[in-house]
Design a protein around this nucleic acid. Structure first.
Lengths: 188, 188
DNA sequence: GTCTATAGGCTGATAGAC
DNA sequence: GTCTATCAGCCTATAGAC
Protein backbone atom coordinates (compact mmCIF):
# COMPACT_ATOMS: atom_id res chain seq x y z
CA UNK A 1 0.00 0.00 0.00
CA UNK A 2 2.84 2.31 0.83
CA UNK A 3 4.30 1.40 -2.52
CA UNK A 4 1.13 2.17 -4.40
CA UNK A 5 0.64 5.45 -2.60
CA UNK A 6 4.15 6.55 -3.48
CA UNK A 7 3.59 5.73 -7.12
CA UNK A 8 0.37 7.64 -7.26
CA UNK A 9 1.88 10.71 -5.69
CA UNK A 10 4.76 10.67 -8.11
CA UNK A 11 2.39 10.26 -11.05
CA UNK A 12 0.33 13.15 -9.78
CA UNK A 13 3.40 15.36 -9.69
CA UNK A 14 4.19 14.42 -13.27
CA UNK A 15 0.66 15.28 -14.35
CA UNK A 16 0.88 18.63 -12.54
CA UNK A 17 4.22 19.40 -14.15
CA UNK A 18 3.10 18.71 -17.73
CA UNK A 19 -0.35 20.23 -17.27
CA UNK A 20 1.27 23.33 -15.81
CA UNK A 21 3.36 23.85 -18.92
CA UNK A 22 0.36 23.53 -21.21
CA UNK A 23 -1.83 25.76 -19.05
CA UNK A 24 0.81 28.48 -18.97
CA UNK A 25 1.20 28.32 -22.73
CA UNK A 26 -2.38 27.93 -23.96
CA UNK A 27 -4.45 28.96 -20.96
CA UNK A 28 -6.10 26.69 -18.42
CA UNK A 29 -9.77 27.20 -19.28
CA UNK A 30 -9.00 27.00 -22.99
CA UNK A 31 -7.43 23.55 -22.61
CA UNK A 32 -9.56 20.42 -22.32
CA UNK A 33 -8.92 17.60 -19.88
CA UNK A 34 -8.32 15.41 -22.90
CA UNK A 35 -5.47 17.63 -24.08
CA UNK A 36 -3.89 17.77 -20.62
CA UNK A 37 -3.90 14.00 -20.31
CA UNK A 38 -2.84 13.28 -23.88
CA UNK A 39 0.31 15.32 -23.25
CA UNK A 40 1.04 13.03 -20.32
CA UNK A 41 0.41 9.92 -22.39
CA UNK A 42 -2.85 8.85 -20.78
CA UNK A 43 -6.54 9.19 -21.59
CA UNK A 44 -9.11 11.46 -20.01
CA UNK A 45 -10.63 8.50 -18.16
CA UNK A 46 -7.51 8.21 -16.01
CA UNK A 47 -7.72 11.85 -15.03
CA UNK A 48 -10.39 11.32 -12.38
CA UNK A 49 -8.32 8.85 -10.38
CA UNK A 50 -5.96 11.75 -9.65
CA UNK A 51 -8.21 14.79 -9.49
CA UNK A 52 -11.85 15.16 -8.51
CA UNK A 53 -12.62 17.81 -11.14
CA UNK A 54 -10.99 20.18 -13.59
CA UNK A 55 -11.13 22.93 -10.99
CA UNK A 56 -9.33 20.65 -8.56
CA UNK A 57 -6.54 20.33 -11.12
CA UNK A 58 -6.37 24.11 -11.47
CA UNK A 59 -5.92 24.56 -7.75
CA UNK A 60 -3.23 21.89 -7.45
CA UNK A 61 -1.46 23.12 -10.56
CA UNK A 62 -1.37 26.71 -9.31
CA UNK A 63 0.10 25.68 -5.96
CA UNK A 64 2.73 23.60 -7.70
CA UNK A 65 3.68 26.34 -10.13
CA UNK A 66 3.84 29.00 -7.44
CA UNK A 67 6.16 26.77 -5.45
CA UNK A 68 8.39 26.47 -8.51
CA UNK A 69 8.60 30.26 -8.86
CA UNK A 70 9.29 30.70 -5.17
CA UNK A 71 12.00 28.07 -5.38
CA UNK A 72 13.70 30.00 -8.17
CA UNK A 73 13.64 33.21 -6.15
CA UNK A 74 15.12 31.35 -3.20
CA UNK A 75 17.81 29.83 -5.38
CA UNK A 76 19.06 33.25 -6.46
CA UNK A 77 22.74 32.94 -5.45
CA UNK A 78 23.18 36.54 -4.24
CA UNK A 79 22.52 37.86 -0.76
CA UNK A 80 23.51 41.48 -1.34
CA UNK A 81 20.34 43.45 -2.11
CA UNK A 82 21.60 45.16 -5.23
CA UNK A 83 23.04 42.01 -6.76
CA UNK A 84 20.01 39.94 -5.81
CA UNK A 85 17.57 42.22 -7.60
CA UNK A 86 19.86 42.73 -10.58
CA UNK A 87 20.04 38.96 -11.04
CA UNK A 88 16.28 38.61 -10.69
CA UNK A 89 15.49 41.39 -13.16
CA UNK A 90 17.81 39.94 -15.78
CA UNK A 91 16.31 36.51 -15.41
CA UNK A 92 12.67 37.53 -15.22
CA UNK A 93 12.63 40.39 -17.72
CA UNK A 94 14.22 38.42 -20.55
CA UNK A 95 13.02 37.88 -24.10
CA UNK A 96 13.28 34.15 -23.51
CA UNK A 97 10.81 34.42 -20.61
CA UNK A 98 8.42 36.37 -22.84
CA UNK A 99 8.57 33.87 -25.66
CA UNK A 100 8.50 30.63 -23.70
CA UNK A 101 5.59 30.91 -21.26
CA UNK A 102 5.43 27.13 -20.80
CA UNK A 103 8.74 27.23 -18.95
CA UNK A 104 8.26 30.58 -17.25
CA UNK A 105 6.64 31.98 -14.12
CA UNK A 106 2.99 31.17 -13.53
CA UNK A 107 2.07 34.70 -12.42
CA UNK A 108 1.98 36.49 -15.78
CA UNK A 109 0.57 33.38 -17.46
CA UNK A 110 -2.40 32.57 -15.26
CA UNK A 111 -3.06 35.52 -12.95
CA UNK A 112 -5.93 36.70 -15.16
CA UNK A 113 -7.64 33.33 -14.82
CA UNK A 114 -7.16 33.39 -11.07
CA UNK A 115 -8.80 36.81 -11.09
CA UNK A 116 -11.95 35.19 -12.54
CA UNK A 117 -12.02 32.18 -10.24
CA UNK A 118 -13.85 31.64 -6.96
CA UNK A 119 -12.83 33.02 -3.58
CA UNK A 120 -11.53 29.73 -2.23
CA UNK A 121 -9.00 29.40 -5.03
CA UNK A 122 -7.94 33.02 -4.63
CA UNK A 123 -7.25 32.35 -0.96
CA UNK A 124 -5.01 29.38 -1.74
CA UNK A 125 -3.27 31.43 -4.42
CA UNK A 126 -2.83 34.42 -2.14
CA UNK A 127 -1.29 32.35 0.63
CA UNK A 128 1.42 31.00 -1.70
CA UNK A 129 1.93 34.37 -3.36
CA UNK A 130 2.60 36.00 0.00
CA UNK A 131 5.40 33.51 0.61
CA UNK A 132 7.00 34.72 -2.63
CA UNK A 133 6.44 38.33 -1.71
CA UNK A 134 8.24 37.78 1.60
CA UNK A 135 11.38 36.84 -0.31
CA UNK A 136 11.27 40.10 -2.26
CA UNK A 137 10.58 41.98 0.97
CA UNK A 138 13.65 40.42 2.58
CA UNK A 139 15.89 41.78 -0.17
CA UNK A 140 14.14 45.04 -0.99
CA UNK A 141 13.57 46.14 2.58
CA UNK A 142 9.88 46.92 2.54
CA UNK A 143 6.52 45.25 2.10
CA UNK A 144 5.40 47.93 -0.36
CA UNK A 145 8.43 47.74 -2.63
CA UNK A 146 8.09 43.98 -2.78
CA UNK A 147 4.50 44.21 -4.05
CA UNK A 148 5.25 47.02 -6.48
CA UNK A 149 8.21 45.22 -8.00
CA UNK A 150 6.18 42.03 -8.39
CA UNK A 151 3.47 44.01 -10.16
CA UNK A 152 6.03 45.58 -12.47
CA UNK A 153 7.51 42.18 -13.33
CA UNK A 154 4.24 40.51 -14.25
CA UNK A 155 2.91 43.63 -15.99
CA UNK A 156 6.00 43.83 -18.19
CA UNK A 157 5.84 40.17 -19.21
CA UNK A 158 2.13 40.33 -20.02
CA UNK A 159 2.57 43.55 -21.97
CA UNK A 160 5.53 42.20 -23.96
CA UNK A 161 3.64 38.98 -24.76
CA UNK A 162 0.75 40.92 -26.28
CA UNK A 163 3.04 42.90 -28.60
CA UNK A 164 3.83 41.92 -32.18
CA UNK A 165 7.14 43.68 -32.77
CA UNK A 166 10.24 41.99 -31.39
CA UNK A 167 12.19 45.21 -30.83
CA UNK A 168 9.32 46.77 -28.97
CA UNK A 169 9.11 43.75 -26.66
CA UNK A 170 12.73 44.34 -25.72
CA UNK A 171 12.11 48.06 -25.20
CA UNK A 172 9.31 47.25 -22.78
CA UNK A 173 11.48 44.84 -20.80
CA UNK A 174 14.39 47.28 -20.65
CA UNK A 175 12.11 50.15 -19.65
CA UNK A 176 10.63 48.15 -16.79
CA UNK A 177 14.03 47.14 -15.54
CA UNK A 178 15.20 50.75 -15.64
CA UNK A 179 12.19 51.98 -13.71
CA UNK A 180 12.68 49.46 -10.92
CA UNK A 181 16.39 50.15 -10.63
CA UNK A 182 15.98 53.93 -10.63
CA UNK A 183 13.38 53.64 -7.91
CA UNK A 184 15.45 51.39 -5.68
CA UNK A 185 18.48 53.66 -6.01
CA UNK A 186 16.67 56.45 -4.23
CA UNK A 187 17.06 54.63 -0.92
CA UNK A 188 20.37 52.87 -1.55
CA UNK B 1 -29.46 52.74 -48.15
CA UNK B 2 -27.60 55.46 -46.31
CA UNK B 3 -30.19 55.15 -43.59
CA UNK B 4 -29.84 51.42 -43.28
CA UNK B 5 -26.05 51.66 -43.22
CA UNK B 6 -26.20 54.19 -40.42
CA UNK B 7 -28.47 51.95 -38.39
CA UNK B 8 -26.25 48.97 -38.85
CA UNK B 9 -23.16 50.88 -37.80
CA UNK B 10 -24.88 52.14 -34.70
CA UNK B 11 -26.11 48.67 -33.83
CA UNK B 12 -22.61 47.33 -34.29
CA UNK B 13 -21.28 49.90 -31.84
CA UNK B 14 -23.90 48.85 -29.31
CA UNK B 15 -22.92 45.21 -29.73
CA UNK B 16 -19.26 46.10 -29.28
CA UNK B 17 -20.01 48.13 -26.19
CA UNK B 18 -22.01 45.42 -24.42
CA UNK B 19 -19.78 42.57 -25.58
CA UNK B 20 -16.76 44.51 -24.38
CA UNK B 21 -18.16 44.73 -20.87
CA UNK B 22 -18.88 41.01 -20.72
CA UNK B 23 -15.52 40.06 -22.21
CA UNK B 24 -13.66 42.22 -19.71
CA UNK B 25 -15.60 40.69 -16.85
CA UNK B 26 -15.77 36.99 -17.78
CA UNK B 27 -13.08 36.65 -20.43
CA UNK B 28 -13.55 36.63 -24.19
CA UNK B 29 -12.77 32.99 -24.99
CA UNK B 30 -14.79 31.81 -22.00
CA UNK B 31 -17.92 33.57 -23.27
CA UNK B 32 -20.08 32.08 -26.02
CA UNK B 33 -21.53 34.04 -28.91
CA UNK B 34 -24.93 33.18 -27.51
CA UNK B 35 -24.12 34.92 -24.22
CA UNK B 36 -22.74 38.00 -25.95
CA UNK B 37 -25.87 38.38 -28.07
CA UNK B 38 -28.33 37.55 -25.31
CA UNK B 39 -26.91 40.47 -23.30
CA UNK B 40 -27.69 42.72 -26.26
CA UNK B 41 -31.21 41.34 -26.59
CA UNK B 42 -30.74 39.39 -29.81
CA UNK B 43 -30.06 35.77 -30.72
CA UNK B 44 -26.86 34.20 -31.94
CA UNK B 45 -28.25 34.00 -35.47
CA UNK B 46 -28.16 37.79 -35.76
CA UNK B 47 -24.52 37.88 -34.77
CA UNK B 48 -23.23 36.91 -38.21
CA UNK B 49 -24.87 39.84 -39.96
CA UNK B 50 -22.50 42.07 -37.96
CA UNK B 51 -19.34 40.01 -37.62
CA UNK B 52 -17.82 37.35 -39.84
CA UNK B 53 -16.60 35.19 -36.95
CA UNK B 54 -15.98 35.22 -33.22
CA UNK B 55 -12.39 36.22 -33.83
CA UNK B 56 -13.60 39.13 -35.92
CA UNK B 57 -15.62 40.29 -32.91
CA UNK B 58 -12.54 40.02 -30.70
CA UNK B 59 -10.54 42.24 -33.01
CA UNK B 60 -13.25 44.88 -33.31
CA UNK B 61 -13.97 44.78 -29.60
CA UNK B 62 -10.31 45.27 -28.70
CA UNK B 63 -9.97 48.27 -31.00
CA UNK B 64 -13.11 49.80 -29.55
CA UNK B 65 -12.04 49.23 -25.95
CA UNK B 66 -8.54 50.56 -26.53
CA UNK B 67 -10.02 53.69 -28.03
CA UNK B 68 -12.14 54.12 -24.92
CA UNK B 69 -9.07 53.89 -22.67
CA UNK B 70 -7.14 56.30 -24.85
CA UNK B 71 -10.04 58.70 -24.77
CA UNK B 72 -10.02 58.68 -20.96
CA UNK B 73 -6.31 59.43 -20.88
CA UNK B 74 -6.86 62.30 -23.30
CA UNK B 75 -9.73 63.63 -21.22
CA UNK B 76 -7.52 63.95 -18.16
CA UNK B 77 -8.06 67.66 -17.35
CA UNK B 78 -4.49 68.43 -16.25
CA UNK B 79 -1.61 69.51 -18.46
CA UNK B 80 1.05 69.85 -15.78
CA UNK B 81 3.04 66.59 -15.70
CA UNK B 82 2.82 66.02 -11.95
CA UNK B 83 -0.90 66.72 -11.74
CA UNK B 84 -1.63 64.70 -14.86
CA UNK B 85 0.02 61.54 -13.54
CA UNK B 86 -1.38 62.01 -10.03
CA UNK B 87 -4.88 62.17 -11.49
CA UNK B 88 -4.26 59.10 -13.65
CA UNK B 89 -2.83 57.03 -10.81
CA UNK B 90 -5.75 57.82 -8.53
CA UNK B 91 -8.24 56.91 -11.20
CA UNK B 92 -6.54 53.79 -12.51
CA UNK B 93 -5.21 52.33 -9.27
CA UNK B 94 -8.53 52.40 -7.44
CA UNK B 95 -10.41 49.61 -5.67
CA UNK B 96 -13.40 50.39 -7.84
CA UNK B 97 -11.32 49.68 -10.95
CA UNK B 98 -10.17 46.39 -9.44
CA UNK B 99 -13.65 45.26 -8.54
CA UNK B 100 -15.55 46.37 -11.63
CA UNK B 101 -13.59 45.05 -14.62
CA UNK B 102 -16.61 45.38 -16.91
CA UNK B 103 -16.35 49.15 -16.70
CA UNK B 104 -12.56 49.39 -16.50
CA UNK B 105 -9.60 49.47 -18.85
CA UNK B 106 -9.27 46.66 -21.37
CA UNK B 107 -5.54 46.20 -20.85
CA UNK B 108 -5.51 44.32 -17.53
CA UNK B 109 -8.69 42.47 -18.48
CA UNK B 110 -7.78 41.03 -21.88
CA UNK B 111 -4.03 41.44 -22.42
CA UNK B 112 -3.44 37.78 -21.52
CA UNK B 113 -5.86 36.68 -24.23
CA UNK B 114 -4.18 38.95 -26.75
CA UNK B 115 -0.89 37.32 -25.78
CA UNK B 116 -2.30 33.98 -26.97
CA UNK B 117 -3.85 35.23 -30.20
CA UNK B 118 -2.45 35.33 -33.72
CA UNK B 119 0.09 37.81 -35.04
CA UNK B 120 -2.40 39.81 -37.08
CA UNK B 121 -4.48 40.62 -34.02
CA UNK B 122 -1.39 41.52 -32.01
CA UNK B 123 -0.43 43.99 -34.73
CA UNK B 124 -3.79 45.72 -34.61
CA UNK B 125 -3.61 45.75 -30.82
CA UNK B 126 -0.06 47.09 -30.80
CA UNK B 127 -0.91 49.95 -33.16
CA UNK B 128 -3.69 51.20 -30.88
CA UNK B 129 -1.64 50.61 -27.74
CA UNK B 130 1.17 52.77 -29.09
CA UNK B 131 -1.26 55.65 -29.49
CA UNK B 132 -2.04 55.34 -25.78
CA UNK B 133 1.63 55.10 -24.91
CA UNK B 134 2.27 58.34 -26.79
CA UNK B 135 -0.03 60.15 -24.41
CA UNK B 136 1.92 58.90 -21.42
CA UNK B 137 5.16 59.79 -23.17
CA UNK B 138 3.92 63.33 -23.72
CA UNK B 139 3.38 63.82 -19.99
CA UNK B 140 6.19 61.70 -18.58
CA UNK B 141 8.90 62.93 -20.92
CA UNK B 142 10.30 59.66 -22.19
CA UNK B 143 9.34 56.64 -24.24
CA UNK B 144 10.75 54.29 -21.62
CA UNK B 145 8.94 55.77 -18.65
CA UNK B 146 5.68 55.64 -20.57
CA UNK B 147 6.03 51.90 -21.17
CA UNK B 148 7.20 51.15 -17.65
CA UNK B 149 4.34 53.05 -16.05
CA UNK B 150 1.81 51.31 -18.29
CA UNK B 151 3.26 47.94 -17.25
CA UNK B 152 3.05 48.90 -13.59
CA UNK B 153 -0.58 49.98 -13.97
CA UNK B 154 -1.79 46.80 -15.61
CA UNK B 155 0.37 44.58 -13.39
CA UNK B 156 -1.10 46.15 -10.26
CA UNK B 157 -4.69 45.73 -11.40
CA UNK B 158 -4.16 42.11 -12.44
CA UNK B 159 -2.38 41.33 -9.18
CA UNK B 160 -5.06 42.97 -7.05
CA UNK B 161 -7.82 41.14 -8.93
CA UNK B 162 -6.26 37.76 -8.16
CA UNK B 163 -6.07 38.47 -4.42
CA UNK B 164 -8.72 37.41 -1.92
CA UNK B 165 -8.15 39.88 0.91
CA UNK B 166 -9.62 43.36 0.48
CA UNK B 167 -6.97 45.12 2.56
CA UNK B 168 -4.18 43.48 0.66
CA UNK B 169 -5.70 44.63 -2.63
CA UNK B 170 -5.48 48.19 -1.37
CA UNK B 171 -1.91 47.69 -0.18
CA UNK B 172 -0.93 46.54 -3.64
CA UNK B 173 -2.54 49.54 -5.30
CA UNK B 174 -0.96 51.98 -2.87
CA UNK B 175 2.45 50.35 -3.23
CA UNK B 176 2.33 50.61 -7.01
CA UNK B 177 1.34 54.24 -6.86
CA UNK B 178 4.19 54.98 -4.46
CA UNK B 179 6.74 53.25 -6.66
CA UNK B 180 5.73 55.22 -9.73
CA UNK B 181 5.72 58.53 -7.90
CA UNK B 182 9.06 57.94 -6.21
CA UNK B 183 10.58 57.05 -9.56
CA UNK B 184 9.25 60.11 -11.37
CA UNK B 185 10.46 62.41 -8.60
CA UNK B 186 14.07 61.54 -9.35
CA UNK B 187 13.95 63.65 -12.50
CA UNK B 188 11.46 66.29 -11.42
C1' DG C 1 -31.74 42.16 -39.85
C1' DT C 2 -33.51 38.95 -36.89
C1' DC C 3 -35.64 34.80 -35.92
C1' DT C 4 -35.80 29.39 -35.24
C1' DA C 5 -33.74 25.12 -36.24
C1' DT C 6 -29.98 22.47 -36.82
C1' DA C 7 -25.51 20.60 -38.09
C1' DG C 8 -21.02 18.95 -36.41
C1' DG C 9 -17.60 19.16 -33.05
C1' DC C 10 -15.78 19.61 -28.57
C1' DT C 11 -16.29 19.57 -23.36
C1' DG C 12 -16.52 17.70 -18.44
C1' DA C 13 -17.74 13.82 -16.27
C1' DT C 14 -19.30 8.81 -15.46
C1' DA C 15 -19.64 3.49 -16.00
C1' DG C 16 -17.79 -0.83 -16.61
C1' DA C 17 -14.05 -4.08 -18.56
C1' DC C 18 -9.35 -5.34 -17.61
C1' DG D 1 -4.91 2.80 -12.42
C1' DT D 2 -5.95 2.93 -17.02
C1' DC D 3 -8.61 1.86 -20.78
C1' DT D 4 -12.88 2.37 -24.09
C1' DA D 5 -17.47 3.83 -24.61
C1' DT D 6 -20.81 6.99 -23.74
C1' DC D 7 -23.88 10.72 -22.03
C1' DA D 8 -25.59 15.33 -21.81
C1' DG D 9 -24.45 19.89 -22.60
C1' DC D 10 -22.26 23.65 -24.83
C1' DC D 11 -19.80 25.65 -28.67
C1' DT D 12 -19.24 28.03 -33.56
C1' DA D 13 -21.35 28.45 -37.63
C1' DT D 14 -24.95 27.92 -41.32
C1' DA D 15 -29.74 27.62 -43.69
C1' DG D 16 -34.12 29.15 -44.51
C1' DA D 17 -38.57 31.58 -42.97
C1' DC D 18 -40.26 36.19 -42.14
Amino acid sequence: MRYKTGYKEQRRKELLHISGQIAKKNGFAATGIDAFMKASGVTSGAFYSHFSSKNDLFKALLENELQNSIQMWQDNPFEDAEQWIEFELNRYLSLSHVERPAYGCVLPALASEVARSDLQLKQTYQAELMRGQQIFKHHLGSEEKAWAVLCQLIGAIIMARSIADENLKQTILTSSKALILSCLETVA
